[in-house]
Write a protein that binds this DNA or RNA. Structure first.
Lengths: 229, 229
DNA sequence: TAATTTCCGTTGCATATGCAACGTATGGGG
DNA sequence: CCCCATACGTTGCATATGCAACGGAAATTA
């Protein structure tokens, strides 16, 4: 368990919780590490006793099955990430998704809600865990809201404009250094890659922007912002 | 304050907290009700001492200002809704948005994070408040994820198919009774209203669906689900 | 250096869709 | 019963964009 504790220090859920405290906390959480072979289910859609999990080793797939049995992949979660936190925290009665090991994996599962509800002991580290969880949920919230802001726009040009303006790193030179390559950006904005390239080129030719790789320079801020607002 | 307490019983943040407990809690939270005249700011973009707020009366606008000073409306929050919870819970150091009274309003503001961090007293109702907040954040998370699922699809037809399949209310007759009218649905899915109508008609003519008002019947489930998965 | 892969821009084409304008049905209020 | 408002469907048109296929530049590997 000690090496697990070491691993967990890289996990946002356990920020500021270390050493003895972490070990205690894992006991409070009734945390256990299970091995799942590739293809095995951590829990199934419709289950009501699903838990919060952390991928210690390997990878899990979040899968949704419709009423006719068609399956679709919602997300793939690698180590050292967490899953199930939104479902557990929202107290959704039965899980709308299945979680399946995408390869042989080690998964830590724990009773998060039980700890939250029975926080009678008021340990310092209980409080910190809850804070961490709120921070995770809230940050994801902000992230999702931003993404929706882009996706809601109709044209590729509007999406690009909004994205670039939001990613200005140097306000003086109006430089946007973005963390995505073309394909990732296209994916993120929900547009076709070649269509993105095309639009970027047109915007360059019109003198709105210039770019090289992932560094974008905004040449006509007013024109861009008019697209966004 | 007592009538405020009555009002707050309709607010999800205070579910399962009533009477004396609620009054105590409001003290712990350092909750105060302020009046803001139309146009006044509850807090401004860049402020670091923003708080969680509840619209008791009136309405507030969430506004974002870009580096050139252009303003855009992000959201309008009517009573009895809450705002600022994601920012506060994610501990975002400075607010990326301003909040402005859209009309003469009464706003309750409180120190949520202070209570969370110093939950030394471990009152039952502290725990419940935190649980409620987590539930709010997590539920919003699930809601946003669902919306992104729709928005990420490229064609109107795919969006409609995904939406209808997700809203099947009667699995036997494959009926989707949806809570939105056409304009709202178009808005939600991020498409033009007339384009939505057009696509719905085409899908009807192709025998995929039939509909009247907000009641949709799925005639060819396989064809629809193929669009979604 | 040569070979290979990855990333990105370009282009032709078919089609989807935003937009605007108008027509139709339905229901509520006078 | 008529008027009016609201919600929806319809359609023409210009254009944006997905898709597929290709080419070149740059980075990586052998």
């Amino acid at each position: 368990m000690k090496e697990i504790a070491k691993f967990l220090r890289n996990c946002k859920l356990f920020t500021n919780i270390e050493g003895e405290e972490l070990l205690h906390l894992l006991t409070c959480l009734n945390a256990k590490v299970y091995k799942f072979n590739r293809g095995n289910f951590i829990w199934m859609q419709g289950d009501s006793d699903y838990k919060v999990g952390i991928v210690v080793e390997g990878k899990v797939n979040i899968i949704k099955e419709d009423i006719m049995g068609n399956r679709s992949l919602i997300a793939a979660i690698p180590a050292p990430h967490i899953f199930g936190e939104s479902l557990v925290s929202s107290e959704t009665p039965v899980s709308p998704v299945s979680v399946q090991a995408a390869m042989d994996s080690k998964i830590m599962l724990f009773d998060f809600l039980r700890l939250v509800k029975s926080c009678g002991s008021a340990c310092n580290y209980h409080t910190r865990l809850i804070q961490n969880m709120m921070k995770i949920l809230a940050s994801k919230n902000i992230y999702l809201n931003e993404k929706i802001d882009y996706l809601s726009r109709t044209t590729t040009r509007q999406k690009v404009a909004a994205y670039l303006i939001n990613h200005i790193t140097d306000a003086d030179s109006l430089l946007s250094v973005i963390p995505l390559n073309r394909e990732e950006l296209a994916d993120y904005l929900g547009v076709n890659r070649s269509a993105l390239s095309r639009e970027l080129s047109i915007m360059r030719d019109e003198g709105l922007i210039s770019f090289k790789k992932n560094i974008f320079s905004i040449l006509n801020y007013d024109a861009l912002s008019e697209l966004v607002f």
